[in-house]
Amino acid sequence: MTTSISTPIVQVKNVKKVYPGGIEALNDISLDFPEGKLTTLLGPSGCGKTTLLKIIAGLLDPSSGEVLVDGQHITGPGPERAFVFQDFALMPWATVIRNAAFGLELAGVNRTEREAVAEKYLHTVGLKGFENKYPHELSGGMRQRVGLARALAVNAKVLLMDEPFSAVDEQTRRKFQEDMLSLVKNEQKTFIFVTHSIEEAVYVSDRIVLLHRRPSRVSEIIEPKIARNVDPEMIRRQPEYLDAVENIWQSLKKFLD
């Protein structure tokens, strides 16, 4: 285990992204993501954090540079990575169980098998009993739980989450953040998490990567030393939590227009 912790599972090397029309979204980003940790990409809107996440996912090609996962150069999406979408990306015509099993359906797993796996993860995310509902019968928070179950069901090592809680209400969001902590603890996966919320980043992250705005560069990497073994309610009262939020705010303030 010690070796795998020291070797980063995802390496981003000199990645640049220039969109057609010459807009530079990312400028020479190099980053390592250690295995088993939750790393957050944090920055103001337009800083390229979602672009970087989609490049790691293989959904976008970098203009130059490369991404290595498990030491392998990636050219597209792969089974070792799973994506959780900001707008949930659920198929409205499919039941909750079919949506949750869709990654396995695409991989050609037979129906009984994939639905058993999907059911297990729907229970993990707290959606027992909703298997045969349709997405429009669910609240926003529950829809994102389906998206999360779908990503967990394919058993990828790396979970890429693009502002997963930004489209749900504040109360649900807090519950989600608490659930994230137990998920990170129990699932032994690497999480790469994108958010624009400083509090959310500090609450859930082992490491926070602060990104500059256009052209986007890494301005700072922060590792909040927060005790996670306490009651989740208490985390927001720890001085370490409050200091980290304040430091990040002071650091991001400089880049505001």
Binding site: G78, P79, A89, G103, L106, V154
Partner: peptide, 22 residues
Amino acid sequence: PGSLIEMAKSFQGTRMQVIGKV
């Protein structure tokens, strides 16, 4: 919706799967 197509691609859906299932 673009995100549905991206979703199917992120789970390594083939072109035919993306067309037929999404």
